[in-house]
């Protein structure tokens, strides 16, 4: 159950699919998933493995099924076929609360109840760790304070969430997800609404959580350069399928970006982080 460090040692025997990095342990994976809503199939056939201890980033065009995949991984939607496994057991067989202690989610869109204060909202992240008679504990207090400090919203504690700016609000939601203190954390576009400084600050925070607290992170990001810089594992999706997967340094090429986004571009080394950097050419020049 402990999140093991990423190891490149032995391949996992039961899967035939080739991966660029084959981790020793995979707590969370989806097998032969068919995902959709009602009659509409979004992802016809999908196998996905989240390497333990990785900072996995999912990229892809709007509407390609990133959120859908994320939601199926934390069983917000039931796959039409296939299964999601957590620690080798089908995730739907766990009690809701047990899953919530292992898997946190920052949804792409969430609504704050009218007039709720920042402190109250962040405190709600502790719900899976509480019970009817023990609705609060010193650990809860620490987790909430730590999460608010880390996301820079401690000063906003007494403010009403609906009176905050979009970026402040986003950081409050991130704080709530962090306060949940789950070993696995799913983040759907955590950096939207944030200015460039806060984007980087938040991504650095995620990297820190990933490296030093051993948390496995799965994030959807739209900025490819951020993805390349911070991801240890990149998943590129297009039309409900995984097109490329692996370390960003290996998979991000001009061809890949062209294939996934239909965008002609140049890929060169980021002078700061030495990870790939994607520079769009723009379609005008290619006509």
């Amino acid at each position: 159950m402990t999140p093991a460090r990423l190891s490149l040692a032995q391949p996992v025997p039961d899967e035939a699919t080739p991966y660029h990095t084959e981790p020793a342990t995979v707590r969370l994976r989806g097998q032969h998933l068919r995902l959709g809503y009602g009659d509409r199939v979004i992802c016809p056939q999908l196998d996905v493995r989240i390497p333990d201890g990785s900072f996995t980033v999912i990229v892809g065009p709007n509407g390609c099924g990133k959120s859908t995949l994320l939601r199926s991984l934390c069983r917000l939607i039931t796959p039409q076929a296939g299964q999601v496994y957590l620690d080798g057991k089908q995730i739907r067989d766990y009690p809701a609360r047990t899953v919530a202690q292992q898997l946190g989610l920052l949804p792409q869109s969430a609504t704050a109840p009218d007039g709720i204060s920042v402190l109250d909202l962040v405190s709600r992240g502790r719900y899976p760790h509480q019970s009817l008679l023990r609705q609060w504990s010193p650990q809860d207090e620490i987790a909430v304070q730590t999460a608010m400090q880390a996301t820079g919203v401690a000063d906003l504690a007494g403010r009403a969430v609906d009176e905050l700016s979009g970026g402040q609000r986003q950081r409050v939601w991130v704080a709530m997800a962090l306060a949940q203190e789950t070993p696995l954390l799913l983040l759907d576009e955590p950096t939207t609404y944030l200015d460039i400084a806060h984007q980087i600050e938040l991504l650095e925070l995620f990297r820190h959580l990933n490296r030093h607290n051993g948390r496995t992170l799965i994030a959807v990001l739209h900025d490819l350069n951020h993805a390349c810089r911070y991801a240890t594992h990149l998943i590129a999706m297009r039309e409900g399928r995984i097109v490329a997967e692996g370390a960003p340094g290996k998979v991000v090429t001009a061809d890949m970006v062209q294939q996934v986004f239909g965008l002609p571009c140049l890929v060169m080394a980021d002078p700061v982080s030495h990870t790939p950097m994607v520079i769009p050419r723009g379609k005008v020049h290619m006509a």
């Binding site: 939601r71 934390c74 069983r75 917000l76 009690p95 809701a96 609360r97 047990t98 899953v99 919530a100 202690q101 898997l103 946190g104 989610l105 949804p107 869109s109 969430a110 609504t111 704050a112 109840p113 709600r124 992240g125 719900y127 899976p128 997800a177 949940q180």
Partner: peptide, 14 residues
């Protein structure tokens, strides 16, 4: 109270 945050957030909290 948790349901007021939307189904996704509530489910994610168990």
């Amino acid at each position: 109270a948790l349901l007021e945050m939307g189904d996704d957030s509530a489910s994610a909290l168990g």
